[in-house]
Lab assay of single mutants.
Amino acid sequence: KYSDMIVAAIQAEKNRAGSSRQSIQKYIKSHYKVGENADSQIKLSIKRLVTTGVLKQTKGVGASGSFRLA
């Protein structure tokens, strides 16, 4: 599940300011076997996790910027 992968990526990075979408994508692609549409799936999952309150956006708008666990 992409949401689990995103949470794992943010936990692994341990950046106080949060993790960027690009760094999350890079982590997921190197640690998991994902399909061609992974980028758009990650983007959608990040937006969903922010609206449900699992992630907090520290910089930027939408799916860009930095995110950390709430």
Rank of each mutant, 00 (worst) to 15 (best):
A63N: 13
A12R: 04
Y32K: 01
T52N: 10
T52H: 07
V61F: 12
T51P: 00
I6K: 15
Q22C: 15
K29A: 06
S3V: 12
G60C: 10
I24T: 00
R68W: 11
R16F: 09
K1G: 07
L49P: 00
K59Q: 08
E13N: 12
I46C: 03
V34F: 03
T51R: 14
V54R: 05
R16P: 15
Y32D: 00
K56N: 05
I46P: 02
S19A: 10
G60A: 07
A70H: 06
K26N: 12
D39L: 07
G18K: 02
A63E: 11
G35P: 09
E13Q: 10
I10H: 02
F67K: 02
Q57K: 11
V61A: 12
K29L: 10
I28N: 02
Q11D: 04
E13W: 05
M5Y: 07
V50M: 04
E13F: 09
A17F: 14
Y27C: 03
S45G: 12
A38I: 13
K26R: 12
Y2N: 00
S3F: 14
K33H: 09
G62D: 08
N37G: 08
V7C: 10
M5I: 02
G35Y: 04
S30L: 10
Q22N: 09
Y2L: 09
N15G: 09
N15C: 13
K14V: 06
G18S: 04
R16C: 15
V61E: 11
N37Q: 06
G18T: 03
A9C: 15
N37S: 07
I46K: 02
Q41V: 08
M5K: 03
L44S: 08
Y2H: 02
L55S: 01
A12P: 00
A17M: 13
L49Y: 00
R48M: 13
Q11L: 14
K26Q: 12
V50N: 01
L69A: 04
G18P: 03
K43W: 15
T52F: 08
V61N: 11
I42T: 00
Q25V: 15
A38K: 04
S19Y: 02
T58R: 06
N37W: 07
V50P: 00
V61W: 11
Q11R: 14
T52A: 14
G65P: 15
Q25D: 06
Y2S: 01
R48L: 12
K43R: 12
I6D: 01
K59D: 07
Q57D: 03
G18H: 04
V34H: 03
A12Y: 07
Q41G: 05
Q25R: 07
S66A: 10
S30P: 00
R21W: 15
K59H: 09
V54I: 10
K26T: 09
Y27T: 01
F67V: 05
V34P: 03
R16G: 12
Q57S: 07
L55R: 02
V54P: 00
R48S: 07
S45K: 06
H31Y: 05
A38R: 02
H31T: 05
Q22I: 09
H31A: 04
I6G: 01
G65C: 15
T52K: 11
Q22Y: 10
Y27F: 08
K14D: 10
T58M: 11
Q11A: 11
A8Y: 05
M5C: 05
Q57M: 13
R21K: 07
S23Q: 09
S30A: 12
R68I: 14
S3R: 11
I28V: 15
G62H: 07
I28F: 01
I24M: 02
K29F: 09
A38F: 11
S45I: 13
L55A: 01
G53T: 00
G18C: 15
V34Q: 04
I24P: 00
R48H: 13
K33P: 10
K33S: 10
G65Y: 15
S23P: 14
G35Q: 05
A38S: 06
A63Y: 08
S45Y: 12
D39T: 08
E36Y: 09
G53K: 05
L49W: 01
K14Q: 12
R48G: 05
R21Q: 12
Q25W: 10
S64A: 10
K26F: 09
G65M: 14
K26D: 12
K56V: 15
G35K: 05
A38C: 12
L55M: 02
I46Q: 00
S20Q: 04
